[in-house]
Simulated assay, not measured.
Amino acid sequence: MIAISKIRKNQPITDNELYLVSVEDLQKLGIHEKTAYRDLKDDIKTLWQVY
């Protein structure tokens, strides 16, 4: 959801654009730092399996 929120309203979505999600982004939502690192690591593994 954080990556989606970084897309500008009229911006086309392409494979050429990167949308970075940081631990700090997750902490702003109230997620503890350790949990944020764990979640990002798990999400990266999932993305690689799907891709």
Rank of each mutant, 00 (worst) to 15 (best):
D39E: 12
D39P: 02
Y51D: 09
D42G: 00
Q27I: 01
I44L: 11
K45G: 07
E24Y: 05
L26Q: 12
L20V: 08
I4G: 00
I13K: 03
Q49S: 14
R38Q: 12
R38A: 09
R8K: 14
A36T: 09
I13T: 02
K34H: 13
E33Q: 14
D42F: 01
L26S: 05
V23G: 01
I4K: 09
M1I: 02
L40G: 03
I4L: 07
V23K: 01
S5M: 06
T46E: 12
N16R: 06
S22E: 13
I2W: 00
E24A: 05
Q11N: 04
N16C: 07
D43E: 07
K34W: 09
N10C: 07
E33A: 13
I13D: 01
E33H: 14
T35D: 05
D39G: 01
I2T: 05
W48P: 00
Q27K: 08
K28S: 11
S5G: 02
V50A: 00
H32Y: 07
T35C: 07
Q27F: 01
I13S: 00
L26T: 03
M1G: 03
S5Y: 11
V21I: 15
G30C: 04
V50H: 03
S5E: 13
L26C: 09
D25F: 11
K41R: 12
D42W: 01
N16K: 10
K41M: 08
D43Q: 02
I2K: 06
E24N: 05
V21C: 04
R8I: 10
P12E: 15
I13V: 14
L20K: 06
A3S: 07
E33S: 12
N16S: 08
